[in-house]
Every structure is written in structure tokens, then in C-alpha cells.
Amino acid sequence: MKDITIEPYTDSDYDSVISLLVDSFKSKFIFRQKLSPENIKQILSSVWNIKEHEPGCLHLIARTGNKVSGVLLVRYGHPRNLGKKIPFLFLCHRFGFFQMIFFLLKLFIFEQYPTGRCYVEHIAVDSSFRGQGIGEALLSHAENILREKKFKELYLTVALNNKAKHLYLRDGFQDMEKIHSPLKGFFMGVNKWEFMRKNLMESKEKNNEA
């Protein structure tokens, strides 16, 4: 296995992260859309507003060699509005008005997270690098940083049929609540989700005992 390095996200990683997110969540992005994965990448590149050192979040990438092989975004506050202007009319002309409205609503639902909690918005690993411990490395690195920031708990939501849930259980997350969401089912094709929680302080104590 090649060496994995975990680094803070930088603006130069933007295009690589967009491609990784679309490839990882392709089935949800294209659900009910007459858009190709390449179309989705072009739209996301125009509308997704994320910057390095953005307040209210922890954004990490995994790099294997010179390639971005994984990404993790944790929200823990209300991010500052960085004011990226969306070229809405241009995108509507290119991809269709109803396709754009539906996609923007989907993106809004996809990015929702519970305020006041430290929450994993997304974690994704390049399909060609899965099974090499990248997801575990991203989570471990993020959790150490969050402990230093005095956060005591970390939350996430995962689709019940997502194999990644096994990773979260191994990492110490526990099931809290099963969620039935017809809205997510309509927009993303998945209506059964699991809300999970990890006690970061408990994990620290176990590591110290070991």
C-alpha cells in the first residue's frame, strides 16, 4: 500500500474534490436528473462554495502519491457566507431550467446538517483506492483535531444500505436514530437513513488506557 498523507484542503484541490464527490455520490446526484456525471461536475464547479480555511468547518484531504484519494468535511458552526455568485441563467440555458431547480434543491437537502453539533457533512474515497484504510485515516486525523478544539461528540448520517456504515461502527460510532425521509427519497432515491454519534472523549480515554 502506498503512503497516505492527510492534509488540510486548499483551493488548488477544488477540481479534484469535485470529481471525487461526483464519482462517490453519483447515484444520488443523477437520480431523477437528465444530467450526466460530467454535467454534474460542471454544475458543481459553478455553484459549490467552499474555500480553504473556511470558518465553521474542518476540511481534510487524503493524498496518495500526487492524487487526491479521499476527502472529509466536518461542519461545526455556521460558515461565513463567502458570496460566490452562481451563474444561474447561464446554467439554465445550458442544462435546462427544471433540471437546475431540481438539482439545486437536491444540493440544499444534501448539505443540510444539524446546527449546534459537530457533524460529518461528507466523507468520500476514490474507488481505485478503497480498502486501503483511507477513510479510517481521515476520520482518525479529524477526530484528533476536534478533540484539540474541545469537541466532545461527532455526528453523521448514513444511508442504511451504505457499506460505509461498517467503517463508522468500527471507528466507534453508535446508532442513535433511524430516519425515514420521503424528501430525501424523492430527491436522492434513498429514504432510510441512520443518525450516528461518537463520544470523542470516551475514545481518547480508551486510547490512553491502551
Rank of each mutant, 00 (worst) to 15 (best):
K178V: 12
T10Q: 09
G70D: 00
P8V: 01
F108Y: 13
S128D: 11
C57L: 14
G116D: 05
S181V: 08
T115K: 15
Y9I: 12
K51T: 12
S140F: 03
F186H: 06
E111Q: 14
F88Q: 05
G65M: 09
M100D: 00
K28N: 11
L138S: 02
P87T: 07
F102M: 04
I109Q: 12
M1K: 04
Q99W: 12
C92D: 02
D13W: 05
D11A: 13
S24M: 06
M176R: 10
E38W: 09
G189Q: 08
D11Y: 03
S128I: 08
F110W: 12
C57R: 15
L20C: 02
T115M: 12
L169R: 08
Y9A: 05
P182H: 05
K206D: 11
F129E: 14
G116F: 10
E54W: 03
V22D: 02
R170G: 00
G185F: 05
F98C: 02
G135S: 04
R63D: 08
I86V: 15
G83L: 13
K184F: 05
F102A: 02
D3C: 11
L35E: 03
K184C: 11
D15L: 14
L73C: 07
V17W: 02
P114S: 11
L138M: 05
I109G: 09
F29P: 06
D126Q: 06
L72V: 08
L167C: 04
E202D: 12
K51F: 04
Y76N: 12
F110L: 14
P87E: 03
S181A: 10
N207G: 03
G70T: 04
K34I: 13
V22A: 06
D23W: 07
R75T: 03
L35K: 02
K41L: 06
K178A: 06
S19M: 06
L105G: 06
S24V: 05
E148Q: 15
S127K: 13
G77K: 07
F151P: 05
P55V: 12
E54F: 01
K165F: 01
N144T: 07
Y155A: 00
L21H: 08
L167R: 05
F173A: 00
G189L: 09
S140H: 07
S16Q: 14
F102E: 01
F31C: 02
D175N: 10
G56I: 03
F151D: 09
H93T: 10
G56R: 03
V120G: 08
S69Q: 02
I50C: 07
M196P: 09
K178Y: 11
F151G: 08
C118V: 02
W48M: 14
A164H: 02
K51E: 10
F186S: 07
S19L: 01
D3R: 12
T5M: 10
R94L: 15
L105F: 09
P37L: 11
K206E: 15
